[in-house]
Protein backbone atom coordinates (compact mmCIF):
# COMPACT_ATOMS: atom_id res chain seq x y z
CA UNK A 1 0.00 0.00 0.00
CA UNK A 2 0.93 3.65 -0.33
CA UNK A 3 4.00 2.73 -2.22
CA UNK A 4 4.68 5.91 -4.13
CA UNK A 5 7.61 4.39 -5.94
CA UNK A 6 6.55 2.24 -8.84
CA UNK A 7 8.74 3.59 -11.61
CA UNK A 8 11.88 1.92 -10.29
CA UNK A 9 10.54 -1.59 -10.04
CA UNK A 10 11.85 -2.26 -13.50
CA UNK A 11 15.43 -2.02 -12.25
CA UNK A 12 17.09 -4.82 -10.35
CA UNK A 13 16.10 -4.52 -6.71
CA UNK A 14 18.18 -5.39 -3.66
CA UNK A 15 15.41 -5.63 -1.13
CA UNK A 16 11.84 -6.61 -1.90
CA UNK A 17 8.98 -6.67 0.56
CA UNK A 18 5.61 -7.81 -0.76
CA UNK A 19 2.45 -7.54 1.32
CA UNK A 20 4.26 -7.91 4.63
CA UNK A 21 1.97 -8.18 7.64
CA UNK A 22 3.29 -8.58 11.17
CA UNK A 23 1.15 -9.06 14.26
CA UNK A 24 2.80 -9.01 17.65
CA UNK A 25 0.63 -9.99 20.63
CA UNK A 26 -2.59 -9.33 18.76
CA UNK A 27 -1.55 -5.90 17.48
CA UNK A 28 -0.79 -5.22 13.82
CA UNK A 29 2.69 -3.70 13.78
CA UNK A 30 3.18 -3.74 10.02
CA UNK A 31 0.18 -3.83 7.70
CA UNK A 32 0.73 -4.75 4.11
CA UNK A 33 4.12 -3.21 3.48
CA UNK A 34 5.37 -3.26 -0.11
CA UNK A 35 8.72 -1.82 -0.95
CA UNK A 36 11.62 -2.29 -3.24
CA UNK A 37 15.08 -0.76 -2.82
CA UNK A 38 17.67 -0.20 -5.56
CA UNK A 39 21.39 -0.92 -5.39
CA UNK A 40 23.42 1.90 -3.88
CA UNK A 41 20.59 4.04 -2.62
CA UNK A 42 20.46 5.62 0.81
CA UNK A 43 17.10 5.23 2.51
CA UNK A 44 16.26 6.83 5.83
CA UNK A 45 13.58 5.10 7.90
CA UNK A 46 11.61 7.55 10.03
CA UNK A 47 8.55 7.18 12.21
CA UNK A 48 7.20 7.67 15.71
CA UNK A 49 7.82 5.14 18.48
CA UNK A 50 5.88 1.95 17.93
CA UNK A 51 5.58 2.52 14.19
CA UNK A 52 7.38 -0.74 13.48
CA UNK A 53 10.91 0.44 12.66
CA UNK A 54 12.66 -2.21 14.74
CA UNK A 55 10.21 -4.85 13.55
CA UNK A 56 11.01 -3.96 9.95
CA UNK A 57 14.75 -4.39 10.64
CA UNK A 58 14.16 -7.74 12.33
CA UNK A 59 12.23 -8.92 9.31
CA UNK A 60 14.95 -7.88 6.89
CA UNK A 61 17.53 -9.60 9.10
CA UNK A 62 15.48 -12.78 9.12
CA UNK A 63 15.13 -12.72 12.92
CA UNK A 64 11.36 -12.45 12.63
CA UNK A 65 9.07 -14.14 10.13
CA UNK A 66 6.25 -11.98 8.75
CA UNK A 67 2.76 -13.42 9.30
CA UNK A 68 1.98 -12.74 5.67
CA UNK A 69 3.97 -11.64 2.67
CA UNK A 70 7.46 -12.26 1.38
CA UNK A 71 10.85 -10.67 1.99
CA UNK A 72 13.60 -11.17 -0.54
CA UNK A 73 17.15 -9.92 -0.74
CA UNK A 74 18.60 -9.89 -4.24
CA UNK A 75 15.89 -12.33 -5.27
CA UNK A 76 16.63 -14.82 -2.48
CA UNK A 77 14.86 -15.64 0.79
CA UNK A 78 16.33 -13.60 3.67
CA UNK A 79 17.58 -16.64 5.52
CA UNK A 80 19.57 -17.76 2.54
CA UNK A 81 20.87 -14.24 1.99
CA UNK A 82 22.30 -13.46 5.41
CA UNK A 83 25.78 -12.91 4.02
CA UNK A 84 24.38 -10.15 1.79
CA UNK A 85 23.21 -8.08 4.76
CA UNK A 86 25.40 -5.95 7.02
CA UNK A 87 24.12 -4.73 10.38
CA UNK A 88 25.16 -1.86 12.64
CA UNK A 89 23.56 -2.11 16.10
CA UNK A 90 22.05 0.66 18.15
CA UNK A 91 24.76 0.78 20.76
CA UNK A 92 28.12 -0.74 21.53
CA UNK A 93 29.77 0.30 24.77
CA UNK A 94 32.74 -1.96 25.52
CA UNK A 95 34.47 -1.93 28.90
CA UNK A 96 37.80 -0.10 29.00
CA UNK A 97 39.72 -3.32 29.63
CA UNK A 98 38.08 -5.47 26.97
CA UNK A 99 40.98 -7.29 25.26
CA UNK A 100 39.82 -6.46 21.77
CA UNK A 101 41.55 -4.18 19.26
CA UNK A 102 39.75 -2.20 16.61
CA UNK A 103 40.98 -4.65 13.97
CA UNK A 104 39.69 -7.66 15.94
CA UNK A 105 36.23 -6.15 16.05
CA UNK A 106 36.21 -5.49 12.32
CA UNK A 107 37.59 -8.96 11.54
CA UNK A 108 34.61 -10.55 13.31
CA UNK A 109 32.42 -9.06 10.60
CA UNK A 110 34.41 -11.00 8.02
CA UNK A 111 34.20 -14.50 9.41
CA UNK A 112 32.90 -14.29 13.00
CA UNK A 113 30.09 -16.74 12.37
CA UNK A 114 32.38 -19.53 11.14
CA UNK A 115 33.53 -22.42 13.30
CA UNK A 116 37.13 -22.76 14.41
CA UNK A 117 40.01 -20.31 14.44
CA UNK A 118 40.67 -18.26 11.33
CA UNK A 119 43.52 -19.38 9.13
CA UNK A 120 43.38 -16.38 6.79
CA UNK A 121 46.78 -14.92 7.68
CA UNK A 122 48.07 -12.07 5.54
CA UNK A 123 45.14 -12.04 3.17
CA UNK A 124 42.66 -11.64 5.98
CA UNK A 125 44.79 -8.93 7.54
CA UNK A 126 44.90 -7.01 4.29
CA UNK A 127 41.14 -7.25 3.97
CA UNK A 128 40.70 -5.88 7.51
CA UNK A 129 43.14 -3.05 6.81
CA UNK A 130 41.20 -2.17 3.70
CA UNK A 131 37.90 -2.06 5.58
CA UNK A 132 39.52 0.12 8.26
CA UNK A 133 40.71 2.45 5.52
CA UNK A 134 37.19 2.81 4.08
CA UNK A 135 36.07 4.40 7.34
CA UNK A 136 39.35 6.29 8.02
CA UNK A 137 40.09 4.12 11.05
CA UNK A 138 43.61 2.93 10.15
CA UNK A 139 45.01 5.36 12.70
CA UNK A 140 43.57 3.46 15.67
CA UNK A 141 43.55 -0.02 14.16
CA UNK A 142 45.61 -1.50 17.00
CA UNK A 143 44.02 0.34 19.91
CA UNK A 144 41.70 -1.29 22.41
CA UNK A 145 38.07 -0.67 21.55
CA UNK A 146 37.37 0.21 25.18
CA UNK A 147 39.41 3.40 24.84
CA UNK A 148 37.77 4.76 21.69
CA UNK A 149 35.16 7.51 21.45
CA UNK A 150 31.55 6.91 20.41
CA UNK A 151 32.20 8.29 16.92
CA UNK A 152 35.29 6.12 16.44
CA UNK A 153 33.38 3.02 17.56
CA UNK A 154 30.55 3.82 15.19
CA UNK A 155 33.04 3.89 12.31
CA UNK A 156 34.37 0.48 13.31
CA UNK A 157 30.86 -0.94 13.41
CA UNK A 158 30.27 0.40 9.91
CA UNK A 159 33.52 -1.24 8.76
CA UNK A 160 32.47 -4.47 10.51
CA UNK A 161 29.19 -4.40 8.58
CA UNK A 162 30.82 -3.59 5.25
CA UNK A 163 33.77 -5.97 5.33
CA UNK A 164 31.76 -8.99 4.24
CA UNK A 165 30.81 -7.13 1.01
CA UNK A 166 27.08 -6.98 1.70
CA UNK A 167 24.57 -5.70 -0.83
CA UNK A 168 22.60 -3.89 1.84
CA UNK A 169 23.55 -2.41 5.23
CA UNK A 170 21.03 -1.82 8.02
CA UNK A 171 21.83 0.78 10.67
CA UNK A 172 19.62 0.84 13.78
CA UNK A 173 19.59 4.34 15.29
CA UNK A 174 23.33 4.82 14.77
CA UNK A 175 23.07 8.51 15.67
CA UNK A 176 21.27 8.12 18.99
CA UNK A 177 24.29 8.44 21.27
CA UNK A 178 26.40 10.85 19.23
CA UNK A 179 26.84 14.60 19.40
CA UNK A 180 25.77 16.70 16.40
CA UNK A 181 29.21 16.80 14.79
CA UNK A 182 29.77 13.05 15.05
CA UNK A 183 26.25 12.49 13.72
CA UNK A 184 27.11 14.49 10.67
CA UNK A 185 30.44 12.65 10.26
CA UNK A 186 28.85 9.23 10.47
CA UNK A 187 26.05 10.10 8.07
CA UNK A 188 28.49 11.50 5.49
CA UNK A 189 30.82 8.53 5.92
CA UNK A 190 28.05 5.99 5.47
CA UNK A 191 26.73 7.91 2.48
CA UNK A 192 30.14 8.09 0.84
CA UNK A 193 31.18 4.47 1.45
CA UNK A 194 27.83 3.11 0.39
CA UNK A 195 27.88 5.20 -2.74
CA UNK A 196 31.45 4.17 -3.66
CA UNK A 197 30.72 0.50 -3.08
CA UNK A 198 27.22 0.42 -4.48
CA UNK A 199 25.75 -0.77 -1.18
CA UNK A 200 22.15 0.01 -0.30
CA UNK A 201 21.84 1.75 3.07
CA UNK A 202 18.81 1.51 5.34
CA UNK A 203 19.29 3.86 8.26
CA UNK A 204 16.71 4.00 11.04
CA UNK A 205 16.56 7.23 12.99
CA UNK A 206 14.23 9.45 14.99
CA UNK A 207 15.38 12.63 13.30
CA UNK A 208 15.42 12.97 9.54
CA UNK A 209 17.27 16.29 9.52
CA UNK A 210 20.87 15.00 9.70
CA UNK A 211 20.07 12.79 6.70
CA UNK A 212 18.59 15.44 4.40
CA UNK A 213 21.82 15.99 2.48
CA UNK A 214 22.61 12.33 1.75
CA UNK A 215 19.28 10.55 1.71
CA UNK A 216 18.01 9.40 -1.71
CA UNK A 217 14.62 8.34 -0.43
CA UNK A 218 12.75 8.27 2.84
CA UNK A 219 10.61 5.47 4.23
CA UNK A 220 8.07 6.96 6.57
CA UNK A 221 6.40 4.48 8.91
CA UNK A 222 3.29 5.22 10.95
CA UNK A 223 0.38 3.15 12.25
CA UNK A 224 1.75 0.06 10.54
CA UNK A 225 1.71 1.68 7.13
CA UNK A 226 4.55 3.10 5.07
CA UNK A 227 5.26 5.79 2.49
CA UNK A 228 8.39 5.56 0.37
CA UNK A 229 9.73 8.28 -1.89
CA UNK A 230 11.95 11.33 -1.98
CA UNK A 231 11.69 13.73 0.93
CA UNK A 232 9.70 16.15 -1.20
CA UNK A 233 7.29 13.44 -2.23
CA UNK A 234 6.71 11.95 1.20
CA UNK A 235 7.23 14.61 3.83
CA UNK A 236 4.19 16.65 2.86
CA UNK A 237 1.10 17.54 4.82
CA UNK A 238 -1.29 15.57 2.61
CA UNK A 239 0.80 12.36 2.43
CA UNK A 240 1.55 12.25 6.15
CA UNK A 241 -2.03 13.17 7.03
CA UNK A 242 -3.16 10.13 5.07
CA UNK A 243 -0.49 7.97 6.69
CA UNK A 244 -1.18 9.07 10.25
CA UNK A 245 -4.92 9.10 9.74
CA UNK A 246 -5.31 12.61 11.14
CA UNK A 247 -4.26 16.12 10.21
CA UNK A 248 -0.51 16.71 10.15
CA UNK A 249 1.45 19.79 9.14
CA UNK A 250 4.95 19.85 7.76
CA UNK A 251 6.94 22.96 8.60
CA UNK A 252 10.25 23.92 7.05
CA UNK A 253 12.41 26.29 9.09
CA UNK A 254 16.02 27.24 8.31
CA UNK A 255 16.48 24.20 6.09
CA UNK A 256 15.10 21.87 8.78
CA UNK A 257 11.86 19.93 8.62
CA UNK A 258 9.40 19.63 11.48
CA UNK A 259 6.31 17.45 11.49
CA UNK A 260 3.55 18.73 13.78
CA UNK A 261 -0.05 18.08 14.58
CA UNK A 262 -2.60 15.46 15.52
CA UNK A 263 -3.90 14.14 18.81
CA UNK A 264 -0.49 12.83 19.85
CA UNK A 265 1.22 15.95 18.58
CA UNK A 266 3.93 15.81 21.20
CA UNK A 267 5.28 12.48 20.09
CA UNK A 268 5.15 13.58 16.47
CA UNK A 269 7.17 16.73 16.95
CA UNK A 270 9.69 15.00 19.14
CA UNK A 271 10.12 12.18 16.72
CA UNK A 272 11.35 14.49 14.03
CA UNK A 273 12.83 17.60 15.60
CA UNK A 274 16.16 17.39 17.36
CA UNK A 275 15.08 17.31 20.95
Amino acid sequence: MRNLDVAHLREESVLDLRGVHVHLGGRAVLRGIDLSLRPGEFVGVIGPNGAGKTTLLKIILGLLRPDEGTVQIAGRDVRAARSLVGYVPQSFAPDPDLPLRARDLVALGLDGARWGFSLGGAQRRAKVDEALAWVDARRYADQSVGRLSGGELQRLLVAQALISDPRIVLLDEPLANLDLRSQDDVVKLVGRVAHERGVTVVLVTHDMNPLLSVMDRILYLARGGAALGTVDEVVRGDVLTQLYGHHVDVVRVHGRILVVGGPDAESLTCSTCDA
Partner: peptide, 11 residues
Amino acid sequence: AARAAEPGEAA
Protein backbone atom coordinates in the same frame (compact mmCIF):
# COMPACT_ATOMS: atom_id res chain seq x y z
CA ALA B 1 4.51 -9.50 31.17
CA ALA B 2 4.68 -10.37 27.48
CA ARG B 3 1.90 -7.96 26.69
CA ALA B 4 3.47 -5.17 28.72
CA ALA B 5 6.77 -5.54 26.91
CA GLU B 6 5.30 -5.25 23.45
CA PRO B 7 5.00 -1.60 22.51
CA GLY B 8 8.62 -0.94 23.38
CA GLU B 9 9.78 -4.02 21.54
CA ALA B 10 7.89 -3.12 18.42
CA ALA B 11 9.14 0.47 18.29
